[in-house]
């Protein structure tokens, strides 16, 4: 399936920032950070829930990117690559008890970019109560389900990429997603009833 137009734009933006980074343009690193910090943080936070750790890890990733910039592969899906770095780094922390090992993914082809969730749909004005409630609904899913949901909808990654990222088969990811959505729908129905009762 062909990418949407705005994906193509983001894609070419990322691609040009990436090649500027490899050539040693520090401002490109800064721009990549601006574009992805929030997203990466949300993703990392979903994985481990430790705010400061996630912040540290993201900083480490960007510092390391600069350290290795001349040796980075020019042909990567930038967004996916960054997600993978954060994920690897977080798992490195978890496994080695705060000794990070960066396993930089080998070059991923830069084709077939996934639709992105750059634009967050959720209304800014939505009350914090409602936000809290929605988060609580998502919070009832298992950690794996939450991660896949986040990657799919918040981060806009393709199932194929999610599968690679999580080291799962694509079919497993699809099944998990399906289950998660079914659960969510059930939870939503219940909690909406509850909300109505509260305000009636």
């Amino acid at each position: 399936m062909a990418g949407y137009q705005y994906d193509a734009e983001l894609d070419s933006r990322d691609r040009s920032l990436w090649s500027r980074l490899i050539e040693g343009d520090k401002s490109a690193l800064g721009l990549l950070f601006d574009h992805y910090a929030t997203e990466l943080f949300s993703y990392g936070y979903h994985i481990c829930g430790e705010r400061e750790l996630v912040k540290d890890v993201i900083q480490d990733v960007f510092v390391e990117l600069w350290t290795y910039h001349p040796r980075l592969s020019p042909d990567v899906k930038v967004k996916f690559y960054l997600y993978r770095c954060v994920r690897n780094a977080l798992h490195g922390y978890r496994e080695k008890d705060h000794t990070v090992t960066f396993r930089f993914p080998e070059g991923e082809p830069l084709i077939d970019s996934a639709p992105s969730a750059e634009t967050l749909i959720v209304d800014e004005e939505r009350s914090s109560f409602e936000k809290k409630m929605l988060n609580r609904i998502v919070g009832r899913l298992s950690a794996r389900e939450r991660e896949i949901i986040t990657l799919k909808y918040y981060s806009g990654l393709k199932l194929k990429d999610i599968a690679t990222l999580l080291d799962l088969r694509e079919q497993t990811v699809a099944n998990t997603l399906q289950n998660a959505l079914t659960k969510l729908r059930k939870y939503v129905a219940i909690s909406l009833v509850w909300v109505f009762q509260l305000f009636s």
């Binding site: 910090a37 943080f41 949300s42 909808y153 918040y154």
Partner: peptide, 13 residues
């Protein structure tokens, strides 16, 4: 479902 799933975490960056 999509809107709920696209939620940023409660305490985003």
């Amino acid at each position: 479902l999509i809107l709920i799933s696209s939620q940023p975490p409660e305490h985003g960056l």
